[in-house]
Design a protein around this nucleic acid. Structure first.
Lengths: 375, 375
DNA sequence: GAGTGTTATGGAAGCGCTTCCACGCGATGT
DNA sequence: ACATCGCGTGGAAGCGCTTCCATAACACTC
């Protein structure tokens, strides 16, 4: 709309030279008060918006790269923990982080369109989010590297965990704790990770296990889902939720209905968000900060050398047993049920059941590093 | 260092024209394979880094503004909740948000230096963070608007709460619940908000009240602080912490030492972070998302019209009584102590004691809006 | 009243890149 | 053999701004 007016327009309007306009704009020395006023109103009249690029170019200013992080930052609390190391890693490499909250497919499209059209980022980090082959090719052509978190896609370097194995592990753990009728609360199947967890869980719990697919993975959704589950299958005594927020909602509702956790119903979540230890929620811990670290390193490497090779990587999960699951006989664990946990209760990592290791032999906790390009 | 090589250098090195270099860089059509290779190695040899500004300028690309949000994003969990509406508000105005985590004074200086030197942002949002007069003048000269959150500074539009009143309210509430020996756990006095809360609390609890000043406001710090307090004043029966994280650490340690909360010691926090309801922590709730909303609106207004007038604003606090404080006789409140709260327990807002309203008559919950500039 | 500052202002030269246009040169058609 | 075409390429014109340099205007001084 009002775009297109330049300092020339302003200068003409104000009846001065462009140099003067520039001086006013920058508040730099020596401009007569009267002139300044004229220029200022001229700016307003023509709706002048200085062009950032031209300014920086002319001023010989910096040339720091930017990477855009597209993630459901605010819908999945999870990404707060990921963003921290990401931001740090990028800051260390003197790269700006532009945070793009992506709530839906349209957001994603719009933002990627813009990045391609305006080359407004030197790198892209995708969180739990796919990208079309067409788009991927386009970005490659433009020389803009892309890395993904928790989303395996052909041709895209990615950091992830074995979601299916983690969920299977949770199911097995519930079974070992004495639960016999397991149920699942999962999320929108659009998210690859949820689908995989679902699959993994059902592999162990049996394909016929009761299941509710929530529209979103929030406390409220958890509450609603466990309600449905209980109404239809009152006998369930173990619930696995594909994330911790659901689990919280579930536990709230169980308590409300007078069911003891974990005595009547054991509950496991997934993620191990901050404060889950205080809440005593048993869960599968994701290495969130390692995700962020990896993403930062990967994108920095690819920006530094556009044809560096970055390998995808699988990080290991751990099972954290707390108060919402029953302790295993003869194993060191905890049954603390106070709102605030006891020392030592935090982050007890248990091994998966001996007879049934996770579907993939737990990958090494160390992270492989990208291989620098050939000289 | 290696900065300074341009496509001219590359072109010379590769023995081609600059147009060809540009074509290679953009992956745009028609370049012979052999030429492409030559150019690519030439790029590498001269350490060529395309200049973002020049690129965008030449390509006639977009001119979206950016605002930098300087906040202790990752040290104060608090800012996650603030960032959400901030990001949304800016996205709605088509403005990029560059998140700058500021862990210390040096970070702040460095980032602001850069913004001034390179004009790399069209606006700045400061979270709990001061700014020198000199710097402030400099930014004003450059026409870069600045707004602040939770930091009142002359000449800077700011959104804040009455910290002293909130803390006084907490102290009064503890007293009314029957606590008689109050103690305070506060944070680094460098933060204005902590100083004010401290003052407000001491006004009610008495200037001689036991107090520990923690270096940081974390769970761990809370644990350590309550330890010191208990060792020196075993008789304390009410603790106010300047934020919720401290409170969590305090409660953990109290439980560990066998003290009942709230029977033996009542505890109040400040902020009302997410999940505090589940934890049953009594606290003073800050309108975090209103902070973010305000900041977004304020900065957008100022960017749209550089001499718009944005008025500072004070938002209202509320006291949320949960399980870590004793219920007031005859008042509707709660004494739930389960790890997961009961329905209706969440967010019960109590009025301050009748006889002693907060130091400022609770400001209206509505937010005044900035006044647009004179035409 | 000519000389010397001083101050506000305009002109023009780039900043490093993209892209339009024109050019040369083999391959094709007749 | 001569025109025609298309492809790969180079030259040059900006993109919108900052800033150096020159200039005009106006005090002042001696």
């Amino acid at each position: 709309m009002s775009d297109g007016s330049t300092i020339y327009d302003v200068a003409r309007r104000a009846g001065v030279g462009i140099a003067t306009v520039s001086r006013v704009l920058n508040g730099s020395a020596k401009v007569a008060e009267a002139t300044r006023r004229k220029v200022e109103s001229a700016c307003r009249e023509v709706g002048f918006r200085p062009n950032r690029a031209a300014r920086r170019l002319a001023a010989g200013g910096g040339n720091r790269p930017r990477v855009a992080a597209l993630m459901p930052f605010f819908s999945a609390n999870f990404y707060y923990a990921v963003a921290r190391p990401l931001a740090q890693g990028l800051a260390a490499a003197d790269i700006d982080l532009v945070l793009c909250n992506v709530a839906n497919r349209e957001d994603k499209q719009r933002i990627l369109d813009r990045i391609c059209a305006e080359r407004s980022a030197e790198g892209v980090v995708l969180g739990s989010m796919g990208i079309g082959e067409e788009r991927q090719r386009q970005l490659k052509t433009l020389g803009i590297p892309v890395v993904a978190i928790e989303m395996e896609l052909p041709g895209l370097p990615c950091v992830h965990v074995d979601n299916a194995a983690g969920a299977a592990w949770a199911a097995r753990y519930l079974l070992e704790g004495g639960s016999t009728r397991l149920a699942l609360i999962t999320g929108p199947p659009a998210a690859q990770a949820f689908r995989l967890r679902e699959d993994g869980f059902l592999t162990v719990a049996g394909a016929a296990a009761p299941l509710v697919r929530a529209e979103s993975v929030t406390r409220e959704a958890g509450t609603a889902a466990i309600g449905q589950l209980l109404d239809a299958w009152p006998g369930i005594d173990g619930v696995f939720c594909v994330n911790d927020l659901l689990a919280i909602g579930v536990i709230e509702e169980l308590r409300r209905r007078g069911r003891q956790v974990p005595e009547d119903v054991a509950v496991m979540g997934f993620d191990d968000l901050p404060l889950m230890d205080v809440l005593g929620i048993s869960t599968i811990r994701q290495p969130m900060s390692a995700f962020g670290d990896w993403a930062a390193r990967a994108i920095v490497t690819r920006i530094a050398d556009r044809d560096a090779v970055v390998a995808s990587e699988s990080l290991s999960l751990s099972l954290v047993a707390r108060a919402t699951t029953r302790p295993l006989a003869g194993r060191p664990t905890t049954s603390e049920k106070q709102p605030i946990h006891q020392p030592g209760q935090v982050g007890v990592d248990l091994k998966p059941a001996d007879g049934a290791p996770p579907s993939r032999p737990r990958p090494s906790p160390s992270r492989r590093s990208r291989k620098p390009a050939n000289a």
